[in-house]
Design a protein around this nucleic acid. Structure first.
Lengths: 257, 257
DNA sequence: AACATTGTTCCGTGGAATGGAACACATGCT
DNA sequence: AGCATGTGTTCCATTCCACGGAACAATGTT
């Protein structure tokens, strides 16, 4: 690493140790895939098969990946689950939000979520599953582009810059319920601003609707959102009242931080 | 990487890419520490300060670590939280256990846990916090040596080999409630076998007692444990009934897998 | 049989990662 | 104030570790 270290990468972070960065990128390939093979990983990372294989087997050794004995494909491993849970346990915003999320869960009998804004996506960092919830959320990803879910819509509605960036990047297809049309999305943003909450139907998961309210920081920028999600009929029967409950929860959370 | 690749490491796994392995070990240093500085990390890893610094800053760039602007110390980062949650979401045993954990939580009004056996430790992979629980578990680690908690005791009680290995490795001090004496631990193991459940007081956290039942695989080896934890008085008032409830939950889980 | 695809292993090579040293900064002690 | 100690960051010479290419084994399709 001689003078003139490369400071530019796709997200502007220093490249640092290249093989560590490659390993992290490999793990990220599995965000939306239960498992992937070596050749697929190599293609996604833009490296040789043997390089991808070495990265993957090293991560298996560390417990960050696991390999299926029959299919030979790789999936996220137990040590990642453990450390990830530890990391989430320690997030101050998540800690602060837990009591009010639990309250929301009980009052609404819906699954209560905390989502953090990250780039042009939201990441669901906490999900307290409703007691009565039979279609579990286990198969639902944790990260969505802003336009896909109520939490993302809610955050974009209160940041014109963010909304424009998301639109410029394109309203990528994600689920059957993904809004793809710019005008439709703009109307949703406006409606969200008027009502103070966003509502989406089958954004994240089939058969599920949700209501979300953004949490803004001191400067008025959205950083997170609270939401409740449940069967479409249950949520649509009650959106205003759910919106008020979630809104109160957000107010409470802002005051206790 | 010429011929004669070293196949032996402390846990018998191939070393693979050394800097990737070092990065993983660095993340593991933070299991029991909210944050650590570069010099501390370097000492723990047995590397130069500059190496630890480079590892840490690379991981910050990837989102796996975060650095406090004032103290300059490093803590686990948001991308690790995200991917870790995804990894946990996808664990088949955790998925299968969720309904019965929720049931336990409701019936007992205690915090319900799923712990997996890993080496001489148990790792708490799922924790459904009791509704009435005010001293939250946010500060409680996810990994404990077997002798410290009820889940660990329960698993050790039904594997003589495992118990002996834990004893040989030493009953390390963990919390004020940690059993340190071999005879005491052996008596606890015997009592657990007689009753079918383990009970510990202030093993994992001050003011909390818990009751755990191991889950054995087809060959009779413990792989996991279910447990409920709550205020000492509540748990001790009802250990037998809690033991039976948790035992039924374990039976149910075994039959559905 | 020929071809395409996958996952794994091997090897020569050069560049990426290392440790040491210097530096900047902060704290505590005499 | 000067010194000792500790921290976190940056730079550079050195070398060995990580890379890509190629070969191989296995599987599936035409």
């Amino acid at each position: 690493m001689a003078a003139g270290r490369v400071q530019d990468s796709e997200r502007g972070e220093a490249a640092g140790l290249q093989s560590v960065t490659a390993a992290a990128r490999l793990l990220e390939c599995l965000r939306y895939h239960d498992e992937l093979g070596v050749c697929d990983l190599a293609r996604r990372l833009g490296v040789a098969k043997s390089t991808a294989h070495r990265l993957a087997t090293t991560l298996v050794g560390c417990g960050f990946l696991a390999q299926d004995e029959v299919s030979r494909r790789y999936s996220l491993g137990p040590s990642l689950a453990e450390l990830g849970q530890v990391a989430a346990d320690r997030m101050p915003l998540r800690r602060a939000a837990l009591p009010v999320l639990e309250q929301l869960r009980q009052r609404t009998d819906c699954t209560a979520h905390l989502a953090l804004l990250d780039g042009l996506d939201v990441v669901y960092i906490e999900r307290l599953v409703a007691s009565s919830c039979n279609p579990l959320f286990s198969h639902v990803p944790r990260r969505f582009p802003l336009h896909v879910t109520s939490s993302g819509t809610a955050t974009a509605a209160f940041s014109p810059d963010l909304a424009e960036r998301r639109l410029s990047a394109g309203l990528v297809h994600f689920t059957a319920g993904t809004v793809r049309d710019e005008e439709v999305f703009r109307r949703r943003l406006e409606l969200t601003r008027q009502r103070g909450y966003a509502c989406t139907v089958e954004g994240a998961a089939k058969g599920v609707a949700s209501v979300a309210v953004p949490m803004l920081d001191g400067g008025g920028n959205p950083v997170a959102a609270l939401s409740v999600a449940g069967p479409v009929k249950r949520v649509l029967a009650d959106t205003d009242s759910l919106g008020r409950l979630v809104g109160s929860a957000v107010q409470w959370l802002r005051r206790t931080r």
